[in-house]
Design a protein around this nucleic acid. Structure first.
Lengths: 347, 347
DNA sequence: TTGAAAGCGCTAACAG
DNA sequence: CTGTTAGCGCTTTCAA
């Protein structure tokens, strides 16, 4: 049961380890006679040989490993993804990577040990970082000679690749949709607005749409907390406490929208009759809610696929920073009431 | 920017690489003078040295890597986890692993390349396999000298560790709860019943409870498909087609319960008034649904933690197969109507 | 078309 | 307390 290695194969096939290596890797610069080749494969099969990728990476300087960093919902919290968004994204990343012969090294961000280390000491071939992080820790990554893809963040950087969606437009579409349906008092419910995160952009989109209608933002309509179901649920109560009279809300994540629905219902208010809601992400769960959630659709799977693809490109020698923006669109479901059937404007 | 290695550190500190290795690993059998130790750390810091774990594993035969295999919802399908269950589980696994100095190598099961290979060629220190797989591919893993933890499956095996919950009891609790509430015509909605999977046990629990009440199973009340929201939604229609008169349903996964709620609503039927539902898993989303889902609770995070712990134990030399069963309990929410207020029995 | 040999970066006897 | 040395399993010049 001891590990069979390339030497064993060489012996079995009656050739040198070099030759075995050549046929295994189909090294282009080398030609091996068909007979030898066959003999080697034969040996591989009978010995049930599997190359040791660790050893291979040691010489080849290639690990076929992609590091993936997924954020915790809240700092110091145990769980990365109460939000199914990450599951969907990770799923697509994993699939694409595997299809291309890469494996995933998964990690949450460790506050103590910045993830640059896991990248360096495992010598991954690329890194995908999801979400926004302090630019300090990102800068460390510049030391690496490895392609880095930033997903869903707006840091300015000349080297790191980025992939995201048009969050500002998304925020605008969501808000405009509500405006078109006659709403004028529109709450903004969201996780905290971090410097280079997506929320900030979505907020700008919210403002854009208000401006289109000659409205200005009302601070009392802003509800900022964490991107969690529980927070959103508490917003319903907060709305009442503030004595506000919103007729609609733009929630910057579907789980927020869903929490809000629940919170309202607890207070005996109905969606969309008493409050209309537009979400963001178009998660699977958005259609599971009742009423199903009108939301901004983004192609999460595509995001994941692209992230991997950028790494693959870089590994293939494609040079230069890549920057991809995926489209967003609004998905009409049942969480918005129309206060003004005639109220549509042209865009 | 070239990789600084242990040699560089040795030179910088004016010692041999051995010494550097000793202080870095704090090798117990070796004692190093405080001065030397300090000098080495100094060098490490100034050179910003990070050990290459690949090289280390090559000699130490230890990778500090745990392989995790998560199933696809449907074979051949791209996405592993439309079901948030896996996100929650993975999250706990990742966290526990990281806290103990391990990283995760994530993989879906590749039909072509059985996962034994990824285990062998990456030489992971342990493998966590979630879900049920053909025992053939599992058997291959016996060739490995590595601890394997099977999560949520009932294969009989003398070597592999297992961790799961009492699925049968869960099924029983769910069904009994419905019976206690006066229901007698209880549908069983589920993914397909695979040989050694959890569904089979949950189904047995369903039968157990029926038997307690002197009832026998009605085949027309069985709805088997895939563990997906969409399937469950279609079940509502199927119920009507079959002309059945269930007053309740036991759904073996929360997402099934939620899909069923939605499907029923589409047909103008209400939960729990027209049909009561009990789910399974107690996902975050269970409380998000409307009505919130009465369900069987299992501690998903604990499952993940235990899975990792078993690997750690094995790595620490704890020998013998471990078999852990975590408790289940019922969580009462709003998806069950009481047809018989007096109908409780003692257990 | 094949092989010998030098390393990749690190650990671990074994000496000293 | 510290260093020499021999690998771990594989790739890759370079020579034959």
């Amino acid at each position: 049961m001891k590990h069979v290695n390339i030497k064993d194969v060489a012996r079995e096939a009656g050739v040198s380890t070099t030759t075995v290596s050549y046929v295994l890797n189909q090294t282009p610069s080398q030609s091996i006679s068909p007979e030898t080749t066959e003999r080697v494969w034969q040996a591989v099969r009978t010995l049930n040989y599997v190359p040791n990728l660790n050893a291979r990476s040691l010489t080849s300087q290639k690990t076929n490993l992609i590091g993936v960093v997924i954020p915790q919902t809240e700092p110091g919290k145990e769980f990365m993804f109460a939000n199914p968004f990450y599951g969907e994204l990770l799923s697509a990343i994993e699939y694409t990577a595997r299809r291309n012969g890469y494996h995933l090294l998964l990690s949450g961000p460790d506050p103590d040990q910045s993830y640059i280390n896991i990248a360096r000491n495992r010598s991954v071939d690329g890194i995908i970082i999801v979400g926004s992080y302090p630019s300090k820790s990102l800068n460390e990554l510049h030391q690496l000679a490895v392609p880095v893809v930033l997903v869903d963040t707006y840091v300015k950087d000349d080297v790191f690749h980025t992939i995201g969606i048009d969050d500002r437009l998304g925020g605008q579409l969501a808000t405009r949709y509500l405006l078109e349906h006659g709403h004028r008092d529109i709450a903004f419910v969201s996780g905290s607005v971090s410097e280079q995160g997506v929320v900030q952009k979505r907020f700008m989109g919210y403002m854009d749409a208000l401006n289109e209608y000659g409205l200005s933002m009302n601070e009392k309509y802003l509800y900022l907390g964490t991107v969690s179901y529980d927070f959103a649920q508490s917003v319903a109560e907060e709305m009442r406490l503030r004595g506000n009279r919103e007729t609609a809300a733009f929630a910057t994540a579907d789980i927020l929208g869903m929490g809000l629905i629940k919170g309202l219902r607890r207070l005996g208010r109905r969606v969309p009759e008493d409050l209309s809601i537009v979400g963001f992400d178009d998660l699977d769960v958005a259609r599971m809610s009742d009423p199903s959630l009108t939301t901004i659709h983004q192609n999460i799977a595509e995001k994941g696929r692209n992230a991997v693809q950028i790494i693959l490109d870089a590994a293939d020698g494609v040079s230069g920073k890549q920057e991809r923006i995926l489209p967003v669109s609004i998905v009409e479901r049942d969480s918005v009431a129309n206060l003004a059937p005639q109220g549509r404007i042209n865009t």
